[in-house]
Simulated scan of single mutants.
Amino acid sequence: MTADGRVLYLVACGGYPAAELPAFVEHARSAGWDVCVIATPAAMAFLDAGRLAELTGHPVRSAYKRPGEPDVLPPADAFVVAPATFNTVNKIVAGISDTLALGLLNEALGAGLPIIMAPYPNSALAGHPAYAASVEALRSWGVRLVFGRPGDPRGGADQPGRENTAFPWDDLRAVLAALPPGRAGAG
């Protein structure tokens, strides 16, 4: 736990930016956040759970706990979803809680906790009508959305399925820094 006592749940979905979480965790911790990583089952293939547990001091959670088991993570004050996949964006809007990550995000929405989300679908999925409607719904519910910009050297025409879009880590850091202390950042 950090001296500030603010707890950030960093939710990772299945996408290559999930491999880059350690640097974001280090930044958030240096800004006073006690960081807990929650991963969708698909995200587990992209991240280093051992390294993240070492950095945060908390286990990486990807499944619901068993009935009667104590919760090993402190309650969250805010959430960052990075990357937020097409699947996760649409399921949150539909109120689906079929993974721990979705369940916690749906609870956070209901509780009015601040959520910062970096949607990261490919261009075909970003053009799907359900995605556009979901993004608008999230915006109207007060979710802070952060989008990437052109320029990622890991994507492009020579790598089908990968977009030429830089993941917005710097923008996520700035939006997180702008949250008021404590739970005052809700909404």
Rank of each mutant, 00 (worst) to 15 (best):
A137Q: 12
R139L: 15
F24C: 15
N122P: 12
P181I: 02
A18N: 06
P59W: 00
V135I: 15
A94W: 14
G182H: 12
A3I: 13
T165N: 01
V60G: 05
P22L: 14
P168M: 07
D98E: 09
A137D: 09
T165L: 11
G155L: 08
A108L: 02
V60H: 01
K91S: 15
T56K: 05
V11M: 07
P83Y: 04
A130K: 00
A19V: 07
Y64I: 02
A45W: 00
S62G: 03
E69Q: 09
G32P: 13
W169S: 10
P70S: 11
L8W: 10
N87R: 15
V81H: 12
E20D: 13
T165V: 15
C36Y: 02
G151R: 03
I116P: 02
A23H: 05
I115G: 06
A166L: 13
A94F: 13
A178I: 02
P119C: 07
P121E: 01
A53V: 10
F147G: 01
G5K: 04
P70H: 08
D4R: 08
S123E: 11
R66V: 00
P168S: 11
R29K: 11
P150R: 06
A31G: 03
G57H: 05
A78S: 14
N122A: 06
I92M: 15
S30D: 14
A19F: 11
L55S: 03
N122M: 09
P150N: 06
A49P: 07
E20C: 09
A84M: 15
E69N: 02
L179Y: 09
A78N: 13
L102G: 13
G103T: 08
W169F: 14
L176N: 09
A157F: 01
F46I: 07
G127E: 04
A76I: 06
A28S: 12
A177W: 00
A3P: 13
S97L: 08
A49M: 05
A184D: 14
I116M: 10
A132R: 07
G155W: 00
L138V: 03
A101R: 02
V25L: 13
Q159Y: 13
A166R: 02
V93A: 14
L145E: 02
D98Q: 10
P17N: 07
G110F: 00
F24E: 15
S62A: 08
R66A: 01
L100K: 14
L138M: 09
S62F: 03
